[in-house]
Design a protein around this nucleic acid. Structure first.
Length: 587
RNA sequence: GCGCCCAUAGCUCAACUGGAUAGAGCAUCGCCCUUCUAAGGCGAGGGUUGCAGGUUCGAGUCCUGCUGGGCGUACCA
């Protein structure tokens, strides 16, 4: 309907040009919107107001001219000029119900579009360091990324979901060393655990696993382990960073390359499989787990650096290698190889983003925590320096969820071992509520997450409101059989003209908005719009349910109502599927 | 200091990307279960959209300057 009005208006604009009312070279963006208020009809356009100036006449006068040019159409019962110059269209009730048949025919495909035009998109999200379990902060990125990916796939994009595994670098060494130290404690060694080591329970679990596999064959006397190690924080002249770095060197030296690798590999595998399982239970799945270590070991990072070197975009200073990111608008140049010879995380990221494009993706969507926003200019700079288009990268920042327990703010820190994990959240609140809660908020909006509220009053969560609407319809269909009727959709679709209630036309209009809403949400990367739409649709259903009985004696009326309600159920289901929430048959 | 993000009802959030009288849920106060599920419905109250200017037919939305909060500003990841 909306596209039809669009086409009509395009023709009207052409005629205005021919009549000399509009300059021939005038470009126009036709805008037709579903109205918020019923008094304004079903659709409205602001065309006359947009063109008032180029036409050199008042909006309402122009609107009158436009009205005269509109072709007769049986579907449009009335057109009127309103307010400052809006043109409102009133659609015949009977035409509104045509959507019911479309929904039922297209079923799970209803709402799909081709706005993506088959463009290949790589959506990279979560990508949390594998140094511990996911916490609730990651949950928001996971929920957003998964929903956005579904939304894009539904809208004609070719989507690949990727998790970048930061399995290289110092944090991983600290982790491996922490595991070994806990292992030594299990063996019976006594010492002060480094203040900067990882202290979570999951470290013990891996250490016990290590002990089970290797007995005490990796044991070293603690005196030997701490020999020559810089003192820890809290001791005279102590430095926790220096302390842990020295311990890493001791671990590597005392264990040897092969055994160190085993410890490293054990903890990495343990944590990664835990993350993968955690996400799967949260309804989030990846097509690809992309390893940073692999990127380094296969020489991809070196190749990227070499490319920059050849084009003269890196230089040496103070023993480090710098990339001239200021040439591309960054605040300062960035180190890619440190004076100790280690490549920075940024070096891998240059190679990684180049690699993404090399794999053939046209659009790269990175979903990052908002604390990484300062990182965007340098990555874009690198893409430009690597001779690729920086506009191919689109960074979606997700703000932190600030956790509360009642009025008290809960602190999160992976290393102190005090945090709320995603797993705990799932168990307390449930997957559906958690997914919905996260995705119902605009991603760049700061968000307060009150755990006490989420679990103690979970019945008040809006997700149940939507699910309830879905379940209610299932229940009606069950009741239908219990009362000895059979659903006859063919008759229902043929009898839609018997639907005359406001609730019914409202629902039909709402259904008709779904495809457009999906396209808009996909292009804006805003899955939260779906959540709000579903609430409104559910509200329409609940109102209708309270106002009239669906299972009535009149066959035609009964089946018409049921056809409408089945269509509502289908759309609820499609929308919920995109945001990763289940559509229960009963509650 | 500089940069990015945010500020909307008591609370948590929307507002179709510049449109008409700024909307929902929670909380508060009235009603509605002999009916297909009351996890529901109907209604009421609640607002100078942080403040001050500007842009235009029209601003919660855009521009400038403040105020207040978050984040960033590493040879960390």
């Amino acid at each position: 309907m909306k596209t039809k009005l669009n086409q009509i208006l395009i023709q009207v604009v052409e005629q205005l040009k021919q009549q000399g009312i509009l300059p021939a070279e005038q470009t126009v963006r036709i805008q037709v919107d579903a109205t918020k208020e019923k008094a304004h009809g079903d659709f409205a356009t602001n065309l006359a107001m947009m063109l008032a100036k180029p036409a050199g006449m008042p909006p309402r006068a122009l609107a009158t001219k436009i009205l005269a040019l509109l072709p007769q159409d049986s579907v449009i019962t009335r057109v009127e000029i309103a307010g400052p110059g809006f043109i409102n269209f009133f659609v015949a009730d009977q035409a509104k119900f045509a959507i019911v048949q479309r929904v039922l025919e297209q079923a799970s495909r209803f709402g799909q579009s081709n706005v993506g035009q088959g463009r290949s998109v790589l959506v990279e999200f979560v990508s949390a360091n594998p140094t511990g379990p996911l916490h609730v902060g990651h949950g928001r990125g996971a929920a957003y990324g998964a929903s956005l990916s579904n939304l894009l796939a539904f809208s004609g994009f070719e989507v690949t979901r990727e998790y970048y595994v930061n399995d290289a670098g110092r944090q991983m060494d600290i982790l491996a060393t922490s595991v070994w130290l806990r292992y030594l404690e299990i063996c019976g060694e006594a010492f002060n655990f480094p203040s900067n080591g990882y202290k979570g329970d999951y470290i013990y679990a891996v250490s016990r696993q290590l002990f089970a596999q290797r007995g005490d064959s990796l044991r070293q006397p603690s005196l030997e382990v701490f020999a020559g190690v810089h003192p820890d924080e809290g001791q005279p002249d102590g430095d926790k960073e220096q302390h842990i770095d020295d311990l890493i060197l001791r671990a590597k030296a005392l264990l040897g390359a092969a055994d160190y690798e085993q410890v490293f590999g054990l903890v990495l595998k343990d944590i990664l499989s835990d993350i993968e399982e955690d996400l799967a239970e949260f309804g989030v799945q990846f097509d690809n787990w992309f390893s940073e270590r692999a990127l380094m070991h296969t020489g991809v990072v070196d190749a990227a650096l070499e490319k920059l070197q050849k084009s003269g975009q890196v230089y040496e200073q103070n023993g480090a290698l710098w990339f001239r990111s200021t040439d591309y608008g960054d605040e300062k140049d960035r180190v890619v190889v440190r004076d100790n010879g280690l490549k920075t995380y940024f070096a891998s990221d240059i190679a990684y983003h180049f690699n993404k494009l090399e794999r053939g993706y046209e659009t790269l969507i990175d979903i990052w925590g908002a604390d990484h926003h300062g990182y965007i200019p340098r990555v874009k700079a690198a893409m430009q320096a690597m001779d690729t288009n920086p506009d191919a990268l689109e960074v979606q920042l997700v703000q932190f969820a600030i956790l509360y327990r009642g009025a008290e703010r809960a602190q999160m820190s992976t290393r102190s071992g005090q945090f709320v994990t995603l797993r705990e959240l799932r168990e307390e609140v449930g997957v559906d509520a958690a997914r919905f809660f996260y995705v119902a908020r605009k991603s760049e909006q700061h968000m307060d997450f009150d755990l006490d509220l989420a679990k103690s009053k979970s019945n008040e969560n809006p997700v149940y409101y939507i699910q309830y609407a879905h379940a209610r319809i299932s229940n009606v269909l069950n009741q239908l059989e219990a009362k000895g009727y059979t659903l006859d959709l063919t008759q229902g679709l043929a009898s839609l003209e018997s639907l005359t209630q406001t609730h019914e036309t409202d629902l039909a209009s709402k259904l008709a908005q779904f495809p457009d809403l999906i396209s808009r949400a996909a292009l804006a990367r805003e899955p939260h719009q779906i959540a709000y739409y579903l609430k409104e649709l559910a509200h329409g259903l609940h109102s209708y349910y309270n106002a009239s009985q669906f299972i009535v004696e009149d066959d035609a009326l009964r089946n018409a109502r049921l056809a409408l309600v089945c269509a509502v159920q289908q759309v609820l289901k499609n929308g919920l599927a995109i945001i990763g929430v289940s559509a229960p048959e009963s509650m």
